[in-house]
């Protein structure tokens, strides 16, 4: 079959403009979504205050953990659930007919998620300082923990969103999120779990992120092992997402 017309090609919009346009679009829709605000800001802040009071005013121990929770929530809700519904509504399929390429879309999602994560971590840091947080920061450790942790959860989120139906993504992402927070070495430290179980759970990305955040923000240590673990989880998820992601 041949489809032909005059060969007058207009110039195209630069990739940077396309990525920035789509990132702004994602942020606009996400920040309007009440559920998103609840999961990203309200729940972590309530958790911060509740844990701090439950643990005798020890905000120093809680702030890094709550930041890990918020980072996980941002990736899971904005990426997994958001992208799952974009697939179902056919929006992704339509976007594939526009100049926005797949790479543009992924980069834009990364930018939007990174910005949301930064805003949410900044909000938690601010409230923690008001509650008396005195962090001992290892700056490269903290930045790498946030970046690699975000990357690992983002890649898992994209894998889920690309492989399953939107409703299944919603249920599974929320389920995994809650299980990981409670039993994944986040709120309950792996050191407080029985030996072999704790050792296994410490390998989970949630535990690695929580302990990397705690080390780099409370003790000023560089969490090398946990960062390697997060990198490994990110690599596995990126590989799976690449293989299974479909746009419709």
């Amino acid at each position: 079959m041949t489809v032909s017309a005059s060969p007058t090609a207009p110039a195209s919009v630069s990739a940077a403009h396309r990525v920035s346009a789509h990132a702004r679009w994602e942020l606009r829709l996400l920040l309007r979504n009440g559920e998103q605000i609840l999961v990203m800001f309200v729940i972590p802040l309530v958790l911060l205050i509740a844990l701090t009071f439950a643990r005798g005013g020890d905000v120093d121990g809680q702030a890094p953990i709550v930041m890990a929770v918020s980072l996980m929530a941002t990736c899971v809700t904005s990426l997994a659930i958001g992208t799952g519904f974009e697939r179902r509504s056919g929006a992704l399929k339509f976007l594939a007919t526009t100049p926005l390429s797949r790479l543009d879309l992924l980069l834009a999602k990364a930018v939007a998620t990174a910005l949301l994560s930064a805003i949410s971590i900044a909000a938690i840091a601010l409230v923690s300082v008001l509650l008396g947080w005195r962090p001992v920061v290892n700056i490269p450790g903290a930045i790498l923990a946030i970046a690699l942790g975000g990357l690992a959860f983002a890649a898992w989120a994209v894998f889920l969103a690309g492989a399953l139906r939107a409703e299944a993504v919603l249920a599974l992402a929320n389920g995994i999120f809650i299980v990981l927070i409670v039993f994944g070495g986040v709120v309950i430290a792996t050191s407080a779990m029985p030996g072999p179980i704790g050792a296994i759970i410490a390998l989970l990305p949630s535990a690695a992120l929580a302990s990397a955040m705690t080390a780099s923000l409370s003790t000023g240590a560089f969490p090398g092992t946990q960062l390697l673990l997060l990198l490994g989880w990110a690599a596995i998820a990126a590989f799976l997402a690449r293989r299974t992601f479909t746009w419709d």
């Binding site: 090609a9 195209s12 056919g90 339509f94």
Partner: peptide, 16 residues
């Protein structure tokens, strides 16, 4: 891509 316009049968809009 900049030279075509497409209307799909199913979907293609952001519900929100």
């Amino acid at each position: 891509k900049p030279r075509i316009g497409v209307m799909l049968q199913q979907g293609g809009l952001y519900p929100t």
